[in-house]
Amino acid sequence: MDTAHSYRRLTQLLSRGSLTRFVIVRLAATGLLLLVLSFVVFALLHLTPGDPARNLVGVRNVTPELLQSIRDKYHLNDPFMSQYLHWLGNVLHGDFGESIRNNTTVTTLLSDRVTLTLQLASLSFVLTVLVAVPLGIAAAWRSGSVLDRSVSAASIVGIGAPTYAVGLLLLYVFGLWLDIFPVYGSGDGGLDRWWHLVLPAITLASGLAAMVFKLTRTAVIAELNQDYVAFAQSRGLSHRQIRSLVLRNAMIPVATSLGLVFAFLFGGTILVEVTFALQGIGSLLAGSVTFKDLPVVQAITLLTATVIALTALTVDILYYLVDPRVRKRGPR
């Protein structure tokens, strides 16, 4: 009886169009994607020139035996497939290995840095959303107004300006001249950390906010031009009711893009990290790639890919919940 019930429940859950089935399938696909990605990155890094053992000792007159012993320690002399399988086997047991460059476990190395990058990306995300979305809506509502034209012009600058230059400019103005924000580093934890992240977050947000602004503006204008708006107006719906209708519909493409924005932020912090002397995963990835520090590169790539995949999944679920048409049809 119980078994039959469970079975029925399971088929129900996995029936076509159910959200659970959708999530399970997507998670499985993400797993497969990560596996393929890990192989590709491993292979690419393997093909690049350079020898991690030599990188570790640098310009020194070391014996071939010493280089050999370092290579042995990190299995660098094993055939390619065997190296990959060795790495994969350990990962499946939760062991991401040891960084060749830093001689500590990858998990230790990443833990603090992931937190910092997540904080930076989150703050930047919040700033982007808080500034760009309301401005986009306002600009669309008063399309052609002074506000619309000036923000649109500013957004072109925002998209065009290189991150590095924006960062330095902000440092000059707010760090040096006005002396409001700190010039470098990630602070001593707590509120001090967030205070240190304000300028980097603004730097990161500047380009993205410009894009999100344009996107929001376009989406709202497109909705405003829909027949149902004219129909609602003719039926005498209040301004407020119409706005709520328009915004709800316009927010669907905006929400999707915001998901991508977050994923982009998480993987795109490197320039800002270097400019503001922040030790997040971006700067670590850059150093690890040239060093050929395989375990670290693999871990960061997979982590970033996971964040992107999970964000995309979350967006799709939200999409499902927000849009009644999708809910009826079932997610695809």
Binding site: L168, L176, P182, V274, A277, S283
Partner: peptide
């Protein structure tokens, strides 16, 4: 001892007296 890899930032850190 702080590690500041970007030289322009390091100059600013000196200018600001940090």
């Amino acid at each position: 001892i702080e590690f500041i890899t970007e030289e322009a930032t390091r100059v600013l850190a000196r200018k600001s007296g940090d």
